[in-house]
Design a protein around this nucleic acid. Structure first.
Length: 644
RNA sequence: GCCGAGGUAGCUCAGCGGUAGAGCAGCUGAUUCGUAAUCAGCAGGUCGUGGGUUCAAAUCCCAUCCUCGGCUCCA
């Protein structure tokens, strides 16, 4: 009996029925067989050792394939579990999946503390076990047998997992003495795992539920070669240098103060320049796109949020209301700008001809975030949204949505963000009580968002359960230096607020109609955007954003007068910079300016002063030769213009 | 909020029961210099905060605040 296997290049070959992945790999080349980790059979990743029984499209997976890496790291998690069991008998296991970079295993150490030294010990044990090259053996077990095994072993988490599984679909994997409930697939044996690094320990709730017991999560990463591990660790080091919290401090962009309060950023002068440039850029883009700026207060009466529904949803675990001394009024720090904007809408009757009405505001909002959640500028308790609310007719929703997508893409492009993902954030269908509003409107909003995104050719991923409580969203996600994903821009369709605020417009039919709202913020928040921007460009901001654009550096104090003249000339032209009159050598002044990541350095000495020139040096690029001061200014003015 | 790890000079960090240290930054002086660190001197800290143990605490214990890594959350 033979079967026909189709290879990724489309070629077909006959094999005997029951051929294994290893044999297929060997038939192609010794090298491939040596590097093969798993095999994809009709889209399903499997162990190499499993016989293939029918015609199929196959692909041998190696370290270079996503599926190969996943199997490798999944097997590494098992290896770690084996080591843990050897070192800490009685340890109970949760789940141990591969992740984007490496793997983790959640374990219950019965309250035993687990620290740095333990990581090193486990790592050592893993290396030892890996050397044995124990094969990963797959075995089908009945549900009863599976339960029996873990009951005997005393592992409540596995039992819980097995109870949720269907009899007949349960498999065990074993390597060495360690047996685990596992769907697989796994690499052939532990010998492939040559380089091992356990990264950190963290707490994690069993099944991700706050109400459950907290397990110890151990993160690690492994590689087939030591060199790759070294490279990875080097890359991590590099990424740390880009961390916005580090650069924010070094470049004096922002700071925090315990006295002001955690999560409440203080923008320093240089950071403020950066922020204000971004604001100006956005203001101009928005005016062009038909938005009208408005300004609203930082607090709002409690009733406003009762009406909007925010009070019911977040009131209890938010910053507590502010009370006035005599009248006993109650105000909330505004967590959102939309209720205020709804009230602006209601200032006068609206006609269908007035729509869409686009109200924009750089609105500073305050939200109580759990203390453990605060993170540099990316997660704070007070922040400024580049917010706007579009009030439109139902028939305008899609076209308005598309216009907003265009604006967001314009912003991302202008700032060089190319690696974003567009996420359609939908309701969790199993948890509908978390959301407000009728099914019909939700379905419609979800559909319209997807259609608008498709219209602009956006590649989107739909994620259930990520919607806001009042409506679905299109979120633009960007990764930080350490690979953590953050939401920047967001666009949200909302049928709820217009209802709650009883917003109306008079239609062409002379009847009252309800407008639809679109919430949108291309940056998301200035704080988070700046954070991601810092990491994106490693502190080397585009010229138009750079807090200091030019450093004027006289060779010695004999040329201070000319340097001052150059500096004044720049200032006249609104070029931002500093003048370094310190009694230091020019090499020193250059070094300091380079460290501050100032894009341009103008070095002036004898030669320049006598000819009204400046010697231009660019950050990271070195000496560019000298030019006439006037020419420099002219060229620079062009180069530092913000994107249109 | 939860689990774990940390808070020592402006910054980066050493010290981990016996009277607070280094480098950089800062200040003063010397130096007048051509593309990534000139030399010397000085000054700078109630060791996050509050309790406790001890003859003696930065060091050990407890509490608390903040930071970091995750988890949960994220209008």
């Amino acid at each position: 009996m033979t079967i026909t296997l189709t290879f990724p290049d489309g070629s077909k070959r006959e094999f005997k029925q029951g051929v294994t992945g290893v044999e297929v790999a060997q038939s192609i080349s010794e090298g491939l067989a040596r590097n093969a980790l798993a095999i994809e059979v009709d889209g399903e990743v499997r162990d190499l050792a499993r016989p293939i029984t029918a015609d199929a499209a196959i692909k041998i997976l190696t370290w270079n394939d996503r599926g190969g890496k996943a199997a490798f790291w999944h097997s590494s998690a098992h290896l770690m579990a084996e080591a843990l069991e050897a070192l800490y008998p009685g340890v109970k296991f949760g789940i141990g999946p591969p992740i984007e970079n490496g793997f983790y295993y959640d374990v219950d150490l019965n309250g035993r503390p687990f620290g740095e030294e333990d990581l090193a010990a486990v790592e050592k044990k893993m290396v030892e076990l890996a050397k044995k090259a124990s094969p990963f053996e797959r075995r089908n077990v009945s549900k009863a047998e599976a339960l029996e095994y873990f009951k005997a072993k005393g592992d409540p988490y596995k039992i819980e997992l097995i109870n949720d599984l269907e009899d007949g679909t349960i498999t065990f994997y074993q390597q060495g003495n360690f047996v685990d409930l596992c769907r697989g697939p796994h690499i052939p044996n532990t010998g492939f795992i040559k380089a091992i690094k356990l990264l950190n320990v963290a707490g994690a709730y069993w099944r991700g539920d706050e109400k459950n017991k907290m397990l110890t999560r151990i993160y690690g990463i492994t590689f087939p070669k030591n060199k790759e591990l070294e490279e990875y660790l080097r890359m991590l080091e590099e990424a740390k240098k880009r961390d916005h919290r580090k650069l924010g401090k070094e470049l004096e962009l922002f700071a925090f103060s315990d006295k002001v309060g955690q999560g409440l950023p203080l923008w320093l002068p240089k950071g403020t320049i950066l922020r204000e440039r971004l604001e100006q850029f956005m203001r101009r883009a928005q005016v062009r796109a038909g938005y009208e700026p408005v300004v609203t207060p930082h607090i709002g009466g409690k009733e406003l949020y009762v009406t909007s529904g925010h009070y019911e949803k977040y009131g209890k675990d938010s910053f507590q209301p502010i009370h006035t001394p005599d009248e006993n009024e109650e105000f909330l720090l505004k967590p959102m700008n939309c209720p205020h904007h709804c009230e602006i809408y209601k200032v006068k009757p609206r006609s269908y001809r007035d729509l869409p009405l686009r109200l924009a505001e750089f609105g500073t909002v305050y939200r109580y975030e759990q203390s453990g959640e605060l993170h540099g500028l990316t997660r704070v308790r007070g922040f400024t949204q580049d917010d706007a609310h579009i009030f439109c007719r139902p028939d305008q929703v899609k076209s308005e949505f598309v216009r907003v997508i265009d604006l967001v893409l314009h912003v991302f492009k202008s700032l060089g963000f190319e690696n974003y993902t567009a996420q359609v954030s939908l309701r969790d269908p199993n948890n509908k009580e978390k959301y407000m509003g009728e099914d019909e409107l939700w379905d419609r909003a979800e559909r319209e968002i997807q259609e608008a995104a498709d219209e602009r050719g956006l590649k989107t991923v739909a994620v259930k359960g990520e919607a806001a409580f009042y409506g679905p969203k299109l979120d633009f996600m960007v990764k930080d230096a350490l690979g953590r994903s953050w939401q920047l821009g967001t666009i949200q369709v909302d049928y709820q607020l217009p209802q709650r605020f009883e917003l109306e417009y008079i239609g062409a039919d002379n009847q009252r109609h309800r407008p639809v709202m679109i919430h949108r913020a291309p940056f998301g928040s200035l704080e988070r955007f700046v954070a991601v921007l810092i990491e994106h460009c490693a502190g080397n901001f585009p010229l138009w954003l750079s807090p200091d654009q030019v450093a004027v550096l006289p060779i010695s104090d004999r040329f201070n007068d000319y340097a001052q003249l150059v500096y004044d000339k720049l200032k006249e032209q609104d070029i931002r910079g500093l003048l370094d009159l310190r009694d230091e050598k020019i090499t020193r002044k250059i070094r300091d300016a380079e460290i501050k990541k100032i894009p341009y350095m103008l070095i002036v000495g004898e030669r320049e002063a006598s000819e009204q020139k400046v010697a231009v040096r660019r950050h990271g690029q070195g000496d560019q030769g000298s030019v006439r001061l006037d020419d420099f200014v002219k060229d620079f003015k062009e180069a530092c213009a913000p994107p249109a």
